[in-house]
């Protein structure tokens, strides 16, 4: 199983490659994109999460290739406007000419439009935003030229196994750590659609101003009150009966995630992933500080090495994995933060 990590600059790439990651992924949003489509992002993220200069991306590709690491570039907006496809295609062409080894896409139209000779010998990865939950959907995207599918984190181990079993000729990727999300990425209108979170920046005169350039999806008054994006927000919830449409009791505070649902980890599932033929394990969150990325890579690398080097039964592996989690992150792992709790459901049976 390969390990894939997020990068936003060549220094991160160097450090992560030295740790032995097999693949890195990044965004590429050249300035000509924002000049034309100011508020729209190429890859659902603000500009600072992506390479904005071709020379920086080139340097990252060079560094990665020196270590034998592949580079995958995300051009994965939920969808593009009619007038944006040509420019998105140009970005892809630029990235591939620089030597990028693959693309991450979410929009079927982009796949349809891309010149197939351009994609020869390229990893064409259909991201989790495409919501590929079944083997027929795998076939659908394979016909469009996909070579790898990122399986949504909401799938159970058994569902993943069944999907892979139907077409083992495809490559499959699973999320393994960070960024546990409540909603199904491709079916969610919160936080990602539009162009990512807005941020504040300080200008030369010392006045704060909205950096609308990085995304106006959240209005300033709302942002300043501490809006965290739909599923992270605090709600007042009232139960209503379907029988009479009447509320029962007062409204109560409600969070989709309890406070502790922040990170997410699926390392315990590695034992199952290895058996079912998972190709790649994806470490998430481009915006994380490099030290966090390093910790995550070391942790997942160690777990996968255990499985590669010695045959270990699942129970022993899970116990060692949990102990390593505690040692690495300084906290007991928590089922609430578990990416793939079905690992344990199966054990219970």
């Amino acid at each position: 199983m390969r390990i894939k990590a997020p990068v936003i600059n060549s220094e991160e790439t160097r450090r992560l490659c030295e740790l032995g990651v097999d693949e890195v992924f990044c965004g590429f949003e050249p300035s000509y994109w924002r000049r034309k489509f100011k508020y729209f992002s190429v890859s659902q993220r603000p500009s600072f999460s992506s390479f904005t200069r071709a020379s920086d991306l080139q340097e990252t590709i060079n560094v990665a290739h020196r270590h034998g690491t592949k580079v995958h570039v995300a051009v994965n907006a939920f969808f593009y406007l009619k007038e944006q496809y040509d420019l998105a295609e140009r970005i892809i062409k630029n990235a591939l000419e620089m030597g990028a080894d693959g693309l991450i896409v979410a929009d079927a139209v982009l796949l349809l439009k891309l010149n197939k000779t351009l994609l020869k010998n390229t990893d064409v990865i259909v991201g989790c935003d495409a919501v590929v939950l079944n083997s027929a959907a795998v076939r659908f995207y394979k016909n469009l030229g996909a070579t790898r599918i990122v399986l949504p984190r909401s799938m159970t181990i058994a569902e993943m196994r069944e999907t892979i079993f139907h077409d083992p000729s495809m490559e499959y990727e699973a999320f393994i750590i960070n960024d546990l999300c409540f909603f199904e990425d491709g079916l969610c209108a919160f936080c990602k659609e539009g162009s990512g979170g807005a941020g504040l920046k300080r200008n030369a005169g010392g006045h704060e101003k909205m950096d609308l350039f990085s995304g106006p999806i959240i209005a300033p008054s709302i942002l300043m009150r501490g809006y965290l994006g739909g599923c992270r927000d605090r709600f007042q919830q009232q139960e209503i009966s379907c029988k009479d449409d009447q509320g029962s009791g007062p409204a109560r505070p409600f969070y989709f995630w309890d406070k502790k649902h922040i990170q997410g980890c699926g390392a315990c599932a590695l034992h199952d992933f290895m058996k079912m033929g998972m190709t790649s394990l994806k470490i998430l969150d481009r915006k994380l500080p490099i030290e966090e990325k390093v910790r995550a890579v070391r942790f997942i690398k160690k777990c996968s090495e255990w499985l590669r080097r010695c045959s270990m039964d699942k129970r022993t592996y899970v116990a060692r994995c949990k102990a390593l989690f505690k040692k690495t992150f300084g906290a007991q792992c928590d089922l609430y933060d578990c990416y793939y709790p079905s690992v344990f459901l199966k054990e219970k049976k």
Binding site: G230, D233, F235, Q236, Q237, Q238, I240, S241, C242
Partner: peptide, 17 residues
């Protein structure tokens, strides 16, 4: 879901969910 549903309100979202 066949017995009840919920109304959600947040000061940050102008509509009831």
């Amino acid at each position: 879901c066949q017995r009840h549903f919920f109304k959600l309100r947040s000061k940050n979202i102008p509509l009831t969910l």
